[in-house]
Amino acid sequence: MYQPLRRTLVIAFPFALACAAVLTTYAALRDHLPDPLATHFPASGKADGFSSATSFIWVSMALLAVQGAVFAALVHRSGRGSRGSRGVGSLRLMAAFAYGESGLLGYLFPATLFANADVPDAADVRLPMWQLAVALACALLAAALGWLLAGADAAPADEPAEEPHRLPLREGEVASWTRTVTSRVLLGVGLALACAGAVLAFTVSPGIGLPMAVMGVIAVLLSGCRVTVDRRGLTVSPPVVRLPRLRVPLGRIEEATSRQVSAFDDFGGWGYRIRAGRSGLVLRSGDALCLRLTTGKEFVVTVDDARTAAALLNTLIHRAADRGAGRSVDAS
């Protein structure tokens, strides 16, 4: 069984290995490197950006260390609340991403040093684009290794949901409920990706750094949501841009309950998640609103005070059903 410390070491290991690869390569080639180094390469492969060897090493090491620390902290924090073998299975996605990221950078940084070796003028250094293909292959292989090291998925055992109940409302009384929830995990990962992408765009290549930076900005924008329950059903939307918007109408909901959910152990991560027979917007662990849909599937949203939201939804569903029954009687 994976203990929190072991889970943390599994995630931190590839970043430590990548740091060792960078330092070893630099130590071996130190006397063969020009000053400054060629560190930025466009699609043509010919260097168009330069920095001192010291700056390049410090930036490379800092980038790997920060990302390793972020991943390790996320896994360690999740591991404290893991339930049995489920923590082993849910570690796989995080491990695959961490190993893939470290494999990509662990190849590109030493490759940049090797490209500079024994070149008198850094302006003549070239890093062909096939090197990027090799780096991506290394990333895929490393991701597969992380997936295997994390262990096999185990069948989840859900926390029991509380009995559904209703919010007492008088006839003709109108009510709505809304809360905002923010994922500190997605916010932290988004900021880390955005910063790492910006550094890579300036030090290595825009083709590598810009996509990572864009992913980071998107993660930051989608790191929170507003959850609203009213006569239309359940509506979930980002608190700032308001789009994309997700709505589950009352007609699709059979009943609502609430329970405690672990993002990492129950859904394998954060964000919009899909599992067999269930889906949901999981921005953090904790209290969650759980909807049993007319299709037999479940939709989950993690949000504070989910019990009140579930009670209001059950009341609104009951009202809608009564009105539908009343119209049927009148029509007959």
Rank of each mutant, 00 (worst) to 15 (best):
E101T: 15
H165N: 10
Q67W: 11
G268Y: 01
R284K: 14
E171R: 10
L222N: 12
L37R: 02
R77A: 14
A27Y: 03
L127M: 09
P156F: 01
D266V: 07
C19S: 12
G190E: 05
D330N: 08
M129I: 08
V248K: 09
A69D: 05
G269A: 01
A18R: 02
E163S: 10
C195V: 13
G81E: 15
T180Y: 06
A143P: 14
C225F: 05
D230C: 03
H165T: 13
H165G: 00
A96E: 02
E173M: 03
Y2A: 00
C138G: 00
G271R: 05
F13W: 12
V174Y: 06
P160T: 05
F50R: 03
I253Q: 01
M215R: 00
E159K: 11
L141A: 15
T295K: 12
L113H: 01
L191Y: 08
V88S: 04
A69N: 03
G207Q: 05
L145R: 14
A38M: 00
A135I: 11
L148V: 15
A263E: 01
L29V: 00
G251N: 05
V22G: 08
R319M: 14
A310F: 11
P110L: 09
G209F: 11
G209R: 08
G49L: 08
T178H: 07
V66G: 01
V261H: 11
V241M: 13
G79K: 02
A320K: 11
D35E: 15
Y107R: 04
A201Q: 03
R323T: 07
G151L: 07
D266C: 06
D330H: 08
E255T: 13
T24M: 13
F299A: 12
E163F: 03
G251C: 12
R242Q: 02
G224I: 06
L186K: 10
Q260C: 02
S223R: 07
G197P: 04
L283H: 02
V227C: 07
S279E: 11
I11N: 05
L23A: 15
E173A: 08
